[in-house]
Amino acid sequence: MPKFIEKTYRSVLNKKKFIDHWFWSRYTLNPYNGCMFGCIYCDARSEHYHMPEDFENQILIKKGIGDLLDTRISRARTLKPDVVVIGGVTDPYQPAETKYRNTRQCLAILKKHQYPVHIITKSDLVLDDIALLQEIAQQTWSTVSFTITTTNPKIAKFLEVRSPSPARRLAAIEKIKAKTPQIQVGALVIPVVPFLTDSDIQLEDVVRSVKDSGADFLLFGGAMTMRNLQASWYLKHIQKSYPELMHKYETLYNFSHNNDTYQGNLVPQASYLLSNHRKLIKLCKDYELPVRIKRFIPADFRKLNYEVAEVILHRSRSKQLTGKPYENFFWAGQHIQNLNESIQDIYSRNALSTISNVTGEVLEMVKHLLENPYH
């Protein structure tokens, strides 16, 4: 049985130096540490995130989270309303939520302060808060992303041990779009798990199912990461249930397996990643599914900055997915959306080139966007 431990924290809202270019989040918030769903591939098991040692059975409940969040936002002098992603590390709608309602408390406070919200989950329990998320959508912006790595029930049960089934997640997407179309909702095919969810048949079935659910987008990654404790935990399960795959993983991630430590690469070979990207790009095009999330646009001086940055970062992601140099576009987009004044004012001073990475092709693209309004 999972053990719930209530713990007092000094702060629960984290501000990032750069906005996440996948989820469009400036802030991150995790109502719980540890996750009862126990997905065996979860990167949060790694040392990087400082989670409880017994990841799925020792759940830390952030005590008084609503008051903490309210105080943090109310007293902050430099925070501006921007996207808060809830659940980037552990699931905000794991079963602990039915008892503690930490996620609901956070949503109420974010609505009070008019902050847009992005929920990342594997649970249809999010439907309990759909009215609150709709109010946030009407006020600013709200998005719900369901992780769907496979539609195969057997593989899903192996990988995502205690999570609601993919069928329930797809049904939740359908319900949200039917009842509250103001909420942007879609799927995250993250990660693509080598040798278990990456076949042509499986990938197409996921894309088709997401499309049929009425989703607004499908965002995908190239493949599963492998990092210290996370990798060791995952490989232990592979060795037990799919031992015939171990040699393939050794080749793909460049390691020799032992039971104590993982010494391989963080990501698979580049050729494997590009192959997955090509497949998923084509599938999403065939099924007319956007591969990017439409971002929140604030009404203050950041409006034009965010609109321009969105186009630049879309181009960056497209280049990255096809194996082309993308870094200059990426950093230009990041610096543009971090500006402390409108990019229009900088353009009026003929000073666009003073923005980091706004050079060459990027500079011409920014000028074109500013001289030819696209909205």
Rank of each mutant, 00 (worst) to 15 (best):
K282A: 15
P290V: 09
V83W: 03
V362A: 09
F37S: 03
K122T: 04
I336P: 03
S342L: 10
S316I: 08
L304W: 07
L196I: 01
T121P: 00
F217M: 08
P153H: 11
A131W: 11
Q334T: 07
R295Y: 01
E160V: 05
V84Q: 00
L280C: 07
P92S: 04
C42N: 04
N276E: 01
N254L: 11
L29I: 09
V210D: 10
A270E: 14
I343S: 03
V366A: 11
L125I: 11
Y93F: 04
S145V: 09
R315Y: 11
Q105K: 15
D124R: 09
R278S: 14
P325T: 05
L352N: 05
D67H: 08
M224A: 12
R26A: 10
T197L: 02
L229K: 15
V206Y: 01
L159H: 06
K63S: 12
F37Q: 02
F195E: 06
R162H: 14
V207I: 14
T150Y: 06
S356Q: 15
L60S: 09
R77M: 12
S165Y: 03
C284K: 03
H335F: 11
V126W: 02
L289Y: 01
V189P: 06
I119L: 04
T225S: 14
A137T: 08
V117Y: 00
A172R: 02
A332G: 02
E160R: 07
Y374G: 01
K175W: 12
E250L: 05
P92C: 03
A96C: 02
G66V: 05
Y32D: 01
P290H: 04
H113V: 01
I86T: 04
V117P: 02
T354R: 10
V161E: 11
L218P: 00
Q94V: 07
P191H: 08
Y242M: 10
T28H: 06
C284A: 10
L339P: 06
P153L: 10
C35S: 02
D205L: 12
